[in-house]
Design a protein around this nucleic acid. Structure first.
Length: 491
RNA sequence: CGGGGUGUAGCGCAGUCCGGUAGCGCACCUGGUUUGGGACCAGGGGGUCCCAGGUUCGAAUCCUGGUACCCCGACCA
């Protein structure tokens, strides 16, 4: 016992924290704002990485690795970039410790001060563009299509497991192109890759769109994002792709000789997703019994629990299960047989529900006699008894069905929580009573956006790509608008 | 950085007001009975009570200072 979750209706935030801890995904560390990702949580990240990495490679990208440390001076080269990150940087000032001459303990050796401080990367644009300078001479050296899997540090004031931590894991793609058009195309291509991943692997529908100027990445001309809706009605930015124009090329003097023999600056993009996606995954599908994982990302897709009274029974069950495990593995299904004698079946059922394992099988003496198996699905909590013969193909289909079902459930939720609103009163009313995505007209100015944020805490999540042209009036100023944007409270 | 809270066994907490040699639940170990939805019985091990100083015959408890973490705000691609 002692594994009760706080219900999400009672306290959503507590429910989330309980879930992270009780599903054994992560825990707080000795370092403020930094978490330990535990094996089960990390296994989910590995599944995500594997799928994304393949998608990047399929779109022509290669992996590389750049330093964790960035010389301070690099940050001063792109003005808006430094502005965006300066307030949350960890800085390395010394390189040596020594014994405290005045007593016990150890101190930073004041004589080991660095000539130039090093910043622990909050993102790698600067170190990468200082490197690309040496890689690019001619249009023949382009494009550069590089991705890096790395950790970054942002000294956030307040942190939450996976959603915002001081250190987090991510990937960052940094590409260099000959033309503006090609870079824009790349920016769009990668936001599509992200949307594809989140929808097809995470089973979470997203809205693709452009960020308003105010919400744009520091140093970007254009930021595209995918926005997902969580069960508490708040939006979570799940991935971004930035068109950086020639800002970084100019800051780091990355020029090339064009086909016409002219010296030109290269065009850049950067794009990233992080361990925040795990936060999205948790919040999107889980219930008051625990995590619900989409089969495509579940470290364990099928768990088999034996039920027995004697060692002889266990032996018989194990013999039958071994055959089934082999059959499932041959189909590429990730299966675990939990024959630990240290926990009872009921305990295991609850445990695997907490951990979100999509399919659970239970086999006892009764089943051996009848040639059956009990099969339970995590998404609906339904249990059925089926013939064990041929169960492997039923399971294979069921995994596909569960993947589809949780996507549809999330899509239905989003549709039910997306509203068109035409007045500011209605807008405020909606935020107060039933938050979600709100489609409203906006006059396109930063001032209006800032006032709305100030008064309601809602921000423009994105200007959707698939939005329809439509005459309307800004909900705040009444000025003309030709398209609705998505407002929401966000993480 | 502002407001609030908490540091006592691996985890969750009581004890602090009113000073007297530290306790409960879970977990852990041993043995037994159990096992189709979070088992039960019996026995057992485990503590610089966040740190430093002070008051006292005596401090988890009172006083002073420090420190860490959590929550709420502000901040945040």
């Amino acid at each position: 016992m002692g594994k009760e979750l706080t219900s999400k209706e009672e306290n959503y935030s507590q429910w989330y924290n309980d879930l992270v801890s009780k599903a054994d995904l992560a825990e707080n560390s000795a370092v403020r704002g930094c978490m330990v990702i535990k094996p089960y949580g990390y296994a989910i990240w590995e599944k995500m990485q594997a799928a994304l990495d393949q998608m990047f490679k399929d779109t022509g990208h290669e992996n590389a690795y750049f330093p964790l440390f960035i010389p301070k001076s690099f940050f001063t080269k792109e003005a808006s970039h430094v502005e965006g990150f300066a307030k949350e940087c960890a800085v390395v000032t010394h390189y040596r410790l020594k014994n405290d001459p005045n007593g016990k303990g150890i101190i930073v050796d004041p004589e080991a001060k660095l000539e130039e401080e090093l910043i622990i990367r909050p993102t790698s644009e600067t170190i990468i563009w200082s490197t690309y300078k040496n890689w690019v001479q001619s249009y023949r050296d382009l494009p550069i299509l590089v991705n890096q899997w790395a950790n970054v540090v942002r000294w956030e004031m307040r942190t939450r497991m996976f959603l915002r931590t001081a250190e987090f894991l991510w990937q960052e793609g940094h590409t260099a192109h000959e033309t503006r058009e090609e870079a824009l195309e790349e920016t769009e291509k990668m936001i599509n890759v992200y949307a594809d991943f989140v929808e097809n692997y995470m089973a979470l529908p997203v809205i693709k769109g452009a960020k308003s100027e105010h919400e744009r990445f520091a140093g970007a001309l254009e930021t595209y994002s995918i926005e997902a809706l969580m069960q508490d009605g708040k939006a979570l930015q799940s991935g971004t792709s930035h068109f950086l124009g020639q800002n970084f090329a100019k800051a780091f003097e990355v020029q090339f000789t064009s086909r016409e023999g002219k010296l030109e600056y290269v065009w850049a993009t950067s794009w990233g997703v992080s361990t925040r996606l795990i936060g999205a995954l948790i919040m999107a599908h889980s219930d008051n019994n625990g995590l619900v994982l989409p089969p495509k990302l579940a470290p364990v897709q099928v768990v088999i629990v034996p039920i027995y009274k004697s060692a002889e029974q266990l032996t018989l069950i194990s013999e039958r299960v071994k055959v089934l495990v082999d059959q499932l593995k041959r189909r590429g299904i990730r299966v675990k047989y939990d024959d630990r004698d240290s926990q009872r079946p009921g305990w295991k059922f609850a445990e695997y529900e907490m951990k979100g394992v999509p399919v659970r099988l239970a086999i006892g003496p009764r089943d051996l006699e009848n040639g059956t198996v009990e099969i339970a699905r995590r998404d609906t909590l339904e249990k059925k008894v089926e013939q064990i013969e041929g169960i492997e193909s039923l399971i294979e289909d069921l995994l596909v069905e569960i993947q589809r079902n949780i996507y549809n459930k999330a899509l239905k939720f989003r549709e039910e929580n997306t509203t068109k609103v035409d007045t500011y009163e209605e807008f405020k009313e909606r935020l107060a009573t039933k938050p979600g995505f709100i489609l409203a007209h906006w006059d396109g100015t930063m001032e209006t956006e800032a006032i709305i944020k100030e008064e309601t805490k809602a921000t423009i999540r994105c200007i959707p790509f698939d939005g329809v042209e439509e005459e309307g009036k800004c909900i705040l100023t009444g000025k003309a608008s030709n398209r609705r944007v998505i407002f929401a409270l966000s993480y």
